[in-house]
Amino acid sequence: MYDMKGISRCQTLLGTFVQIDIEADADDRLLLSASDAAFNAIHEVQDELSFHDANSALSLVNSSAHLAPVPVSRMFWDLLSWCLCLSKDSDGLFDVSVAPALLNDGRLPNHWPANLRSGNHESIVMNNGTVYFEQAMALDFGGVAKGMAVDFAIQAIKEALSADLVQATVNAGGDIRMYDCHQQVVGVVNRCQNVEMLHMQQVAVASSAAYYDNGVSAIYHPKAMKARKMDHTVSVFASNCQLADALTKVAVLDLNHSVLNDRGAQVVLS
């Protein structure tokens, strides 16, 4: 069907366009099933962690974890543990509990009264497969789940094609991970809306830009609870897309924070 030992597909998921490119020494059927597996992996993340879906596992936690401990999946548990660790290492700059500020500004759908939510990441208790909020609050994985989904998709492609895989790229609205990034470039939309070409310095990149909203980003300072003004597009290259996605928030708030270096990230302003 494709005759090029490759497939490129694009679907709408996670509120954005998800683009998958695969080159492999494989037939059409295998290429198709590898791309299906990648999209399915992203679907699973969306179904579990969407803030916008009132029926997602995340919405169940947000609606009732302040009343009693809520059992969560392994995916949820692992991601939340990882996020809390990064919150600690970034001195609270990365914080999945900034959702109430985004709710108040209309950037997230308000399923529940936001003004009743005052807790932060320190109010989260994880115990025996359950999550409990000591104070009413709301989690939002919007700053990390897209990157995680991209990692899962690349993993699904690698598992489907194993040694036959030559090159693969998954791009979810600018959160990009490649299998084999050697000599690859990526176009980054800079502060003037021009496209600037950057080398893929590591396998994953995520960027945060503010040109589209008068310089106001969707990144909130966890202490001030205000959206951050940005002068540049901030791109973070890292060893996986979840990390790149999450660290863009830290880089926007404090470009010199030690966690960026400690986690092996490279930051480029454009």
Binding site: T12, T16, T169, G174, V189, A209, S235, S270
Partner: peptide, 20 residues
């Protein structure tokens, strides 16, 4: 048309609301 040179773009808002 840029797709010959750049296969992936980062740092752009890409809402899929119009598709929905």
């Amino acid at each position: 048309v840029l797709d010959q040179h750049i296969k992936n773009i980062s740092g752009a808002t890409m809402s899929c609301r119009h598709v929905t």
